[in-house]
Every structure is written in C-alpha cells, then in structure tokens.
Design a protein around this nucleic acid. Structure first.
Lengths: 147, 147
DNA sequence: CAAAAATTGCGACAAATTTGCATTAAACGT
DNA sequence: ACGTTTAATGCAAATTTGTCGCAATTTTTG
C-alpha cells in the first residue's frame, strides 16, 4: 500500500476514526487528481460510493487537515493539504483561466510565518492564490478557455 | 454619496452597465459587512431584492473586479477587492474559528509579484489565507465558536 | 418626456448539500 | 477466527443553493 495511504490510516486511527473503503477511495482519488469539486469526486466514484458519503468524507478530511478547500481562479476545489503533498501555490489567468502551479520560495514562506506570528498565531498552513494574465493572453494569443 | 459608491458607478458605466438600485444596495452591504456569503446578502436584502438578482449582481461584480470570492477559514465568502478596500490578508484559528485581518508587509507583496513574474504572469491581485492557532487557543482558553 | 435598451422580479426548475434511520462494515475483546 | 459492540454507509427524502426564461419595470438615451 502506498505510503500516503498509510499516513491517512494512521491519522484516522489517531483521531478515533475507522479505516474504511470509502475513505481510502476518496483519498486516493484526490491524491491522483488534484483540484476536484465534490461533484467531480462523486461522479468518479458513484459506482462504489453514495453521494452523502462523499460529502461526509470531505468534511471529515477537512476537519483532520487532510484536504483543504480553496477558491482557485474561478471555482471552488479540493486538494490535499501540505502534510500529504508538496506545498505549492497557484496562479490563474483572468482571461483564459489557465492555472499554473508554483513552488513557493523560502523567503515568501518565512514572510508568511512571521506575519502570522505578529498577530500571536502559530501558523499551521496557508493558501496563496494569485490572479494575473498569462504570457499568451498578454500577447493576445489565447484561443480557448480551460473548463 | 460616498466616494466608493461613486467609484462603483463609474466602473459600471465604463463597462456599459447601468447604475441601478440593486447594484448600489449589494455594493454598500458588502462594503459595510465584509465576508458575507451569497445567502447572507440575500437574507439581508430580501425585502428589497430578489434572490436571482443577488446572484446576478455577485457574478457581475466579480467579473468587473469589484468583489472577490475566497475560502476563508471554514466558509466561502465575498469581500471587496483591493481596488475598493485596503489590501489585506486573513489568518483564522483552526480551533475557535476566530478571524483576524492582517496588513500585508511590502516585502511579502514584493515576493508574491516576483513569484508570479517567474511564471510569466503579470500579477493583478492575490489572496493569502493563513491557518493557525490563536493565542487564546494555544493557552486553552477558548470558550466559544465564531459563527 | 418618449422610445429603446438593460435590468429586475417572478415562478419554475435544476443542482448541490444535509438529514434520519435501517443496514452493513469495521474494530474490539476473547 | 468469531461474535459483539461501535462506527460508517447507503438510501430516500428534505432542504438549501443556484439558474433560467420571460413579462414587467427601471434606467438610459436622444
């Protein structure tokens, strides 16, 4: 079994939750296809999992810090939180809706942590979503919208 | 009339949209009470405005860059974009859901712009949402959840 | 102020999310 | 491994949220 799944099972146990087929399936789907909506998760797994279970699982995963919700570009999506995937940020093009994943620079990460500290918080995570215009669209070469 | 409202009217006209009662009411509500959900906006204005108009207005305002959507802490909310309010970020407590508004430091802002540039984007805006644990909760003094 | 254009309200609809409860699966102790 | 206990799931219904077409109203334009 993949190590991330073992980590999931461990987190579930630590908080007193069962290691179930539904939870493993949702987790592995989100792991393979980042930036999914609840409906997309349900559609992908509807042969095996009920709609209500998808929502209950998402809620639990968010509570446990396994996934995080974010409004990225133009829609709400889910992705694995930093504990389960490499920390990153997104920039999306206002014009063509293209989304690019960015690796954060240490300087930026440090600045964020120090900002949190100045408010008395111990930071556990963050999301940064940048909006802008991509090179293609700056040059008027955009042809299609990403869906 | 307040200057922000004049700015709204100007933006609407520049893009060929009418200056209507509905748009002014939604704008002024969002201005006064930041971090509202669409339903909260509708509830506050339901005596005067139809549900469909609320959604249509939100969509238009987002298109025009007047408001932005974000997932802050534990729910999706709307707030005025930077052109209509002071640029800021949020940090929310994982435990008690308290939200604190943070004034960004220039160093951080610069780092974000340079990150965008490295991907070939010209950045037009960004959202930073930090999660953490507030001082009260670190000391085990939290008593209630913010709603 | 009248005509044209855009916006809104309304009602019906569609999609998304939540809930209670019977059934099934997982965890636990032996 | 097996039966018991506890937790999770499926199912069906209800609720909530968001969308659409069109007639009525408001705003803009000349």
């Amino acid at each position: 079994m993949a190590s991330a799944t073992l980590q999931l099972i461990d987190t579930l146990r630590q908080h007193g939750y069962s290691n179930t087929r539904v939870r493993r399936m949702v987790f592995e789907l989100v792991q393979q296809h980042d930036r999914l909506t609840p409906t997309e998760i349900y559609t992908a797994l509807s042969d095996h999992i009920d709609r209500a279970s998808v929502y209950r699982t998402i809620d639990l995963f968010e509570q446990l810090g396994i996934i995080q919700r974010l409004y990225s570009g133009w829609k709400y999506v889910l992705e694995l939180s930093d504990n389960y995937s490499d920390h990153h940020h997104h920039i999306s093009c206002q014009t063509c809706h293209k989304v690019v994943t960015l690796t954060a620079k240490q300087q930026l990460e440090d600045a964020i942590h120090s900002l949190a500290q100045s408010a008395g918080f111990s930071a556990t995570g963050h999301q940064l979503e940048i909006r802008g215009i991509c090179l293609d669209c700056q040059q008027g070469q955009s042809t299609s919208y990403q869906t």
